[in-house]
Nucleic acid binder design. Structure first.
Lengths: 180, 180
DNA sequence: ATATTTGCAAAGAGTTTGCATCATA
DNA sequence: TATGATGCAAACTCTTTGCAAATAT
């Protein structure tokens, strides 16, 4: 693995690599096996039960692309004829958050979405106000600002969220941005 | 007024000025008169009605300190024996957002709050995960990152949100941060 | 065996909406 | 006086909870 900075990214100009991950040589199948293994260890340690439903939900998440919410996950599992209740989805998402196999992001007032977090770079988001497209970027200076603020305020920072909102490069969205 | 950078702040080290504002020589009363005037102009231009309720809500907001939500505003107006319905509060907040006299901030999944936006510096937030204390800071580099991302992605950025989460300098909160 | 997990339906919080009444322009 | 604003209650969305049945340890 390359040497990375504290933010987990080499340079702002490595944008083409942003959608990759630390272990991009891994197939999706490899990655699913790895997260299942991590989940097993976590459940053992916490003395929680290793139920088939929990592993199926984890697998469904890691098979999907991009961001998702509880309801989308529920629907996609039902579409695969996997019987599961919403209550269990919500419950399992909490467990997966706790063991950091997923991360919750807030992209707007009513736009809270989850993302896979195993094997992916730290990153921030660009959100198109028109088409809701979400893009990812990484800028190491965010981490530098974080360190400075941390020492200046004597505030122990554990996480951050940086969202830029605007109109994306999509032609329709650009046109709308000129109207305003 | 001093010359400010694009982010509306002079330097990261001007932290003591962060809670001030561009027109800090104005009294609260002056400021309320000014926002009422701006609101009048906006309502005229949009051909909306200049009702007493709308002005009372605006006044209530500018008389209060810090961040607030719809319900807190409702309660504080009722406590002053001002009869108003929740529906009207929500309605008026939408109007005030549209004319940019207030701004909505998302500090966490279920923590969406409004803040006054007339006469205040652009800033970002530090949020304590323990006591929910919200602090403000300003770092001009956020704006520099924004400009770079904007030109790199050809994405017209109109707004941003940068939150740092952690444990604040409060003794209890610091102790909790060491436990984890 | 027994304590946790699950599924269902009902409850809950926060916000929005429909409609009759009221008030601004 | 005519259209927009308001207040109330009902509806709505998303999430959580209570409880009985199922299942992992």
């Amino acid at each position: 693995m390359d040497i990375l900075d504290g933010a987990g990214c080499r340079s702002i100009l490595n944008v083409k690599q942003l959608h990759g991950n630390y272990e991009s040589y891994m197939t999706i199948k490899d990655k699913i096996n790895r997260v299942k293994q991590l989940f097993t260890e976590y459940l053992d340690q916490k003395e929680l039960r290793k139920t088939p439903v929990r592993f199926s939900i984890l697998e469904e998440i890691y098979q999907q692309e991009g961001h998702f919410d509880a309801d989308a996950l529920y629907v996609s599992m039902r579409n695969r004829n996997f019987k599961v209740s919403r209550a269990t989805i919500y419950n399992t998402l909490e467990v997966l958050l706790d063991c950091q196999l997923i991360k919750r992001r807030q992209f707007g007032e009513n736009l809270g979405l989850y993302e896979k977090s195993y094997g992916f770079k730290q990153h921030d988001h660009l959100i198109c106000a028109d088409c809701n497209r979400i893009m990812e970027f990484c800028d190491p200076r965010v981490h530098i600002i974080q360190q400075m603020i941390e020492s200046f305020y004597n505030f122990k920072i554990t996480d951050h969220s940086l969202n830029f909102y605007g109109n994306c490069m999509n032609k329709d969205c650009q046109e709308k941005s000129n109207v305003h």
